[in-house]
Amino acid sequence: MTSKVEAVLDALKVTGTGALIGYLPVGFPTLAESIEAAVTLVENGVDILELGVPYSDPVMDGLVIQEATQTALAGGFRLSDAFTAVKEITARVSAPVLLMTYYNPVLQYGVDNFARDLAAAGGAGLITPDLIPDEAHEWIAAAEKYDLDRVFLAAPSSTDERLAQAVKQCRGFVYAVSTMGITGARTDVDAAAHSLVTRLRSVGATHIGVGVGISTADQVTEVLSYAEGAIVGSVLVKALADGGVPAVGRCAAELSPK
């Protein structure tokens, strides 16, 4: 079983650059526009796509992303739309597509069914911010069955034992949360991010993406000096909200290290 995400990260490491991982919510401002926006990200330098599944209780998301997901839900977003988006995007671009979703929608849909439909749509795997590895047996089994990546989060507050567990169970990359708190643009990426990556390396991590608070090209470059991927979300969502698909393309191009 091979990971599309790890293949991209490894290839970029050989070239001396890292991966720009771009986040947008599915269905914002409409389903069709969210698909166009995701394709535009890849056309403007994003290497891996992270598509957020709108959820009514987004505990980790900052205001920009919360407002976007509420717009998507108000516009009639259905979980099946996520698979539609993945299928249409992967038909047009080769970048791996990960869904970022809270775990409750997966449970409601059926874990095996969700994994099956995501794989059938061409998706690479899931990022599950509220699911810890020792409670993820059913999802891990389904991911292995359908050859999907499973990305768990690691926080600065995590114990070394927890970090080791996350590294062992992740496939694709470990999502290193750069700061304690919710998502959103910040002027500085916390020093805690570099420290966390060092700790993850010490317990065997070979593919790490750093997210939460990254919003400038300089921050992307800084993160990619010590991690394989830099995850950018809120600034892209804001660009899409303020200026539509053209603006999100320009924003991606400005952030891209290549």
Rank of each mutant, 00 (worst) to 15 (best):
T2L: 14
S3C: 11
S3V: 09
K4H: 11
E6T: 14
E6V: 12
L9I: 15
G22S: 10
T30V: 03
A32W: 02
S34V: 07
I35N: 10
E36W: 13
L41D: 01
L41V: 10
E43M: 03
N44W: 07
V46I: 13
V46N: 03
I48P: 02
L49Y: 11
G52N: 06
V53A: 04
V53W: 02
D57C: 06
P58Q: 02
V59K: 11
M60V: 13
D61R: 11
V64F: 01
V64T: 10
E67A: 00
E67V: 09
T69L: 07
T71C: 07
L73E: 10
L73N: 01
G75W: 01
F83L: 04
A85E: 08
E88G: 04
T90G: 06
A91Y: 02
S94H: 03
T101P: 09
P105Y: 02
Q108Y: 08
Q108V: 08
N113A: 05
N113G: 05
F114E: 05
A115C: 09
A115T: 00
D117K: 13
D117S: 09
L118M: 00
A119F: 01
G125M: 00
T128N: 08
D130L: 06
E135P: 08
H137A: 15
H137N: 11
E138R: 15
I140E: 06
A142R: 07
A143L: 06
E144A: 09
D147A: 15
D147S: 14
L148M: 07
D149I: 02
F152C: 15
L153F: 04
S157G: 13
T159K: 00
D160P: 06
Q165P: 04
V167K: 06
V167D: 00
Q169L: 07
C170S: 09
R171L: 00
V174R: 03
G181R: 12
I182T: 15
A185S: 10
A185C: 06
A185D: 03
R186S: 05
R186F: 01
V189W: 07
A193R: 11
S195V: 13
L196E: 03
L196A: 11
L200Y: 08
S202A: 14
V203P: 13
V203Y: 12
V203T: 15
A205M: 15
A205D: 08
H207L: 11
G209S: 14
V210L: 14
V210T: 07
G211F: 12
V212R: 13
I214S: 05
D218A: 14
E222V: 02
E222G: 04
E228D: 14
I231Y: 02
V232D: 09
A239T: 01
A239H: 02
A241L: 10
G243N: 13
P246S: 05
A247K: 09
V248S: 01
G249V: 00
R250V: 02
A253I: 03
S256P: 03
S256W: 11
S256K: 05
S256G: 08
P257N: 11
K258W: 03
